[in-house]
Amino acid sequence: MSSGQANSERSARHPALDNIELVAFDLDGTLIDSVPDLAVAVDAALGDHGQRPVGVDKVRDWVGNGSRKLVERALAHALATAPERLEPQAVETVHARFLDHYAEKPYAQTTLYDGVRQCLSALATRSVTCVLITNKPIAFVGPILSHFELADFFALTLGGDSLDEKKPHPAPLLHAAQHTSTAPAKALMVGDSRHDIAAGKAAGFRTLAVTYGYNHGEPIAACRPDHIVTTLAELG
């Protein structure tokens, strides 16, 4: 590459990528819009236990802390009670049915956000290592990545049950940094929610948030990420 080409690439690169060797991506709400399929599974699980459906709009606000927390919020809403007042066994029972229903159709209505493939392809071309860190149970991650032909972009994939801790705890991010022999200061966490940004900051990563996705109805700017984009194509 000539010096002119190198300077041109540097000028075109988003500043979030300056001196970055590792990019960790969230999945739901960042790479894919999975809420339609999650809502179908939540409503089916509630229906199995005689409860009315909660619908896609409610589910969109509840995503982000893993599947059990999603079911807990949905069941509490259906029963018009506080989550902490639920019987743990009732949550476990409905959660088990949710997992069964979601496993049947984890990507029937799920879509890839605009700019995702462009972004991942560009990072691969630049030899930037990418990992996936999601709070979704790991059993569902592989089939979804395969469906969208994204698996080969990631050097490591962690689900919400891959380690003892999940986001917003920094452990998954620090595990990814260690696994790829990357200093946290040279890593970037990309996500759509306060949990992603909190995990990134706690791990010593730089942070980048997308303006779409699921952040419990709150503006992502309130989390004070280092960078904000409206589409991941901006990183490409």
Rank of each mutant, 00 (worst) to 15 (best):
Q5N: 02
H14G: 12
L17H: 10
N19E: 13
N19R: 07
L22H: 06
L22G: 12
D26Y: 04
D28Y: 04
G29R: 14
G29K: 13
V35E: 07
V35D: 06
D37G: 11
A39K: 12
A39Q: 11
A41H: 06
D43G: 02
L46R: 07
G50M: 11
P53C: 12
P53A: 14
G55H: 09
D57M: 09
D61S: 15
W62M: 14
G64L: 12
K69Q: 12
L70Y: 07
L70N: 10
V71P: 01
A76T: 06
L79N: 09
A80I: 06
T81W: 08
E84S: 05
R85S: 10
V91H: 00
R97E: 13
P106T: 07
Q109G: 00
T111V: 13
G115K: 07
V116L: 09
R117A: 02
Q118I: 03
Q118M: 03
S121A: 06
A122F: 01
A122L: 08
T125W: 03
T125V: 14
S127A: 15
V128T: 15
N135K: 14
N135F: 10
K136R: 15
I144T: 11
I144Y: 01
H147F: 14
L150K: 02
D152A: 05
D152P: 00
A155Y: 04
L156F: 01
G159V: 08
G160F: 00
D161H: 05
D161Q: 06
S162G: 07
L163E: 11
D164N: 12
K167D: 04
P168H: 09
A171I: 05
P172Q: 04
L174W: 02
A177T: 11
A177E: 07
A177F: 02
P184W: 03
A185I: 09
A185Y: 01
A187H: 04
V190H: 03
S193W: 05
D196Y: 07
I197Y: 02
A203H: 04
F205A: 13
R206C: 12
T207W: 04
T207L: 08
Y214E: 06
N215Y: 04
H216N: 14
H216I: 09
A221G: 00
A221V: 05
H227Y: 15
T231C: 12
L232T: 10
E234F: 05
